[in-house]
């Protein structure tokens, strides 16, 4: 094993731990923003600078939906990050080819699929409330790379499951 490979594991472990915390902070920030739109709606309207002549209430409702759906991404991200962290731990212990990791990879694939669907819905809402007077550029919508990642993860989960079964068979061979 090269020095780079040995360093990759602790770096991945620490990065994942940081990302788990950042994900919850992101969730808290979105929740705070969403709550604030209800607490002080006029101030929020001024802050986002909705131009006169546009349907401000529709824009506000759309933004609330985007924030609400953004909140749904937090537990999904958490699921992905914690499963990945557990997988990194098994690599550290020197025994990653176990059935539990195949299930973890499958759970990650489903979460990625849900995130892609969320992204499409959020992108759709963004397009619906955007106009020439109120341009809204969201980094959401259909993404070829995102869907490729979903397919790749599902395939990898299956490969992992088959590999684990093969290893179990080999271990029971005398």
């Amino acid at each position: 094993m090269t020095k780079g490979q040995t360093a990759a594991l602790p770096i991945a472990y620490v990065t994942l731990r940081i990302l788990i915390v950042l994900n919850w902070l992101y969730g808290a920030a979105i929740l705070g923003l969403l709550a604030f739109t209800f607490i002080n709606e006029p101030w929020f309207m001024r802050a986002i600078d909705v131009p006169a002549g546009t349907d401000a209430q529709a824009i506000m409702t759309g933004l609330r939906w985007i924030a609400g759906l953004g909140l749904l991404a937090v537990p999904l991200n958490h699921l992905i990050l914690t499963r990945l962290l557990r997988m990194v731990e098994t690599v550290g212990r020197g025994d990653p080819f176990i059935a539990a990791n195949a299930y973890r990879l499958q759970a990650i694939a489903w979460a990625l699929l849900a995130l892609q669907l969320l992204s499409i819905v959020i992108g759709g809402i963004g397009k619906a409330i955007a106009s020439k007077e109120f341009p809204l550029h969201l980094d959401a919508g259909f993404s070829i790379n995102g869907w490729l990642a979903v397919i790749l993860t599902f395939v990898l989960a299956r490969v992992f499951a088959e590999g684990t079964l093969m290893r179990e068979d080999l271990e029971g061979t005398i």
């Binding site: 179990e168 068979d169 271990e171 029971g172 061979t173 005398i174």
Partner: peptide, 19 residues
Amino acid sequence: DITLANLSILKTGKARAIR
């Protein structure tokens, strides 16, 4: 030249396969 543990697995019928 097979470990006693592996041979016991074979004897008790717990082995999945035999080479």
